[in-house]
Simulated assay, not measured.
Amino acid sequence: MNGGGKGTAGRIRIIGGSLRNSRLDVPELPGLRPTPERVRETLFNWLAPVIDGARCLDLCAGTGALGIEALSRGAAGVQFVERDTCAAQALRANLARLEADAGQVTVLDAGLFLQGAAQPYDLVFLDPPFALDLWPALARQLEQGGWLAARGWVYVESPRGLAPALPPNWQLHREGQAGEVRFALYRRALPLS
């Protein structure tokens, strides 16, 4: 969802789990593009066997809709990373209002965050601003920096028709398209020595 005018861009809803039908306030910010409901529904249907108890990283979180949806469906915790202060503030407010205590927000550029001390995540949401073409660099940092569990999952959202260059050991599990968006779920295989 792209911003441009004044005021609040609106609200989106959580579509499943314990927070189902909860609304998230969405600030109006240039380039902010919440993952559409039907894409989230498809993705979390794919993730149903593995989401319960998963440790998640919502990189370039924006509204945090993906991470909050994960918390709603039983994820053990979500680390949200968002560089825009206004988006991060709205995300914190939504988490507080929903009493989603297992979500933690860090205000920092995703690339800088991934230069820190790594801890492996079971599931990473990789949905950077489309205009910045950050997929290859962030994917490389995730893979090489120890941020992914041995058989972790990575969700990648990109413009329709663009399959970003990703590490060769990320195996495509499922993919789809909706409107101008390509969405894909990858499973990490252990790299060959």
Rank of each mutant, 00 (worst) to 15 (best):
N2A: 14
G5E: 13
K6S: 15
G7R: 09
G7P: 02
G7W: 09
T8Y: 12
R11C: 10
R13W: 04
L19E: 10
L24H: 03
V26L: 03
V26W: 03
V26I: 14
V26F: 07
V26A: 00
P30N: 05
G31I: 04
R33D: 08
R40G: 05
R40T: 05
L43A: 08
F44I: 07
F44R: 05
W46R: 14
W46T: 13
L47S: 00
D52R: 14
A54P: 01
R55V: 06
R55P: 00
C56N: 01
G64I: 00
G64T: 03
G67N: 06
G67W: 02
R73E: 06
R73D: 04
A76H: 07
G77M: 10
Q79C: 10
F80Y: 07
E82A: 02
E82C: 02
D84V: 01
T85L: 14
A88C: 09
A88N: 05
A88H: 03
A88V: 09
Q89Y: 11
A90R: 04
A90S: 13
N94H: 04
N94S: 07
N94D: 10
L95H: 00
A96D: 14
L98C: 07
D101K: 15
V107M: 07
L108T: 12
D109A: 15
G111R: 08
F113A: 04
Q115L: 11
G116Q: 15
G116F: 10
Q119P: 03
P120K: 02
P120T: 04
P120L: 03
D122W: 03
L126P: 00
A131M: 08
L132W: 10
D133L: 11
W135P: 01
P136N: 09
P136W: 11
P136R: 14
A137V: 13
A139N: 06
L142H: 04
Q144V: 06
G145K: 06
G145R: 02
G146Y: 09
G146L: 06
W147M: 01
A149W: 05
A150V: 12
R151F: 12
R160E: 12
L162M: 13
L162Q: 15
L162G: 05
L162I: 15
P164G: 08
P167H: 03
E175Y: 06
G176I: 02
A178I: 04
G179F: 05
E180R: 15
V181A: 11
V181C: 08
F183C: 01
A189G: 11
L190V: 15
L190N: 13
P191T: 06
